[in-house]
Design a protein around this nucleic acid. Structure first.
Lengths: 120, 120
DNA sequence: TTGACATATTCCGATATAGGTATATATTGC
DNA sequence: GCAATATATACCTATATCGGAATATGTCAA
């Protein structure tokens, strides 16, 4: 048994660039699948599969209209991501964090050469 | 030629629950690898590999101190995620969106009864 | 019914990657 | 030098999953 346990959550859904593109497209309003296909320039089955993933995490909802399936955004499914990342926002907004960073750097230089090797 | 092009970006890095755990642990301050191993209850090589991914997207930085490698958070690497998801925040905060949703529903009901589209 | 259209599902092959084990590298102390 | 500690890397296996092609399902019109 390897590979993590198929985390079918919002984080995973959104990790795929195509799926973010789909959500971005739906931000302008409800769209049928063939419009999304046109926007992404991807095959129709692939789009349907991405839509399924998005549906499973609740990020989109569907309604049928004739032979069309109209997808609409449900941004609330992205709330966990927003909540999680929001906690880190202060890291790049507060000046105090910068000061702390500089102090750490100085400290490590003082103690020897250990200041670099951050790259490989 | 299949499978998407190895998106080594912040979205991908954070899609892994273990890596979010690591970042959460580092939110409290700099930690050596063995502390992270203890927190996660995962093997040391696995943790090192996760740390490498996080380093490659800039979400963490390292400095050496003796034989230890002290990892610290760099929240700014998460800014793209924050910026992206922020756009969707209004979806679940604004009331107007709800109204729009209801209107859409009503419209679809209206259109549902007609057997031909001549009255559209 | 037949056929056209719209979308979903199934099967396939290629690749990415998580975790596991063993090993390599680096630092410290003897 | 050698041993111990701390971490990183290499190799392996199992699985997840992307894109592609073929096919199935569903809806409408003639």
């Amino acid at each position: 048994m390897a590979r993590a346990a198929t985390t079918a959550d919002a984080f995973n859904a959104v990790a795929e660039p195509r799926r973010r593109q789909i959500l971005d497209a739906l931000a302008g309003g409800e769209l049928p699948v063939n419009r999304i296909v046109a926007v992404l320039g991807l095959g129709q089955p692939q789009v349907s599969k991405h839509l399924r993933v998005l549906r499973e995490v609740g990020a989109v909802e569907v309604r049928s209209e004739g032979r069309q399936r109209l997808y609409r955004l449900n941004g609330e499914a992205l709330k966990p991501i927003h909540d999680w990342v929001k906690e880190y926002e202060r890291t790049w907004t507060e000046r105090l964090e910068r000061m702390d960073e500089v102090l750490e750097e100085l400290k490590s230089k003082e103690q020897g050469d250990g200041s670099d090797d951050s790259q490989r």
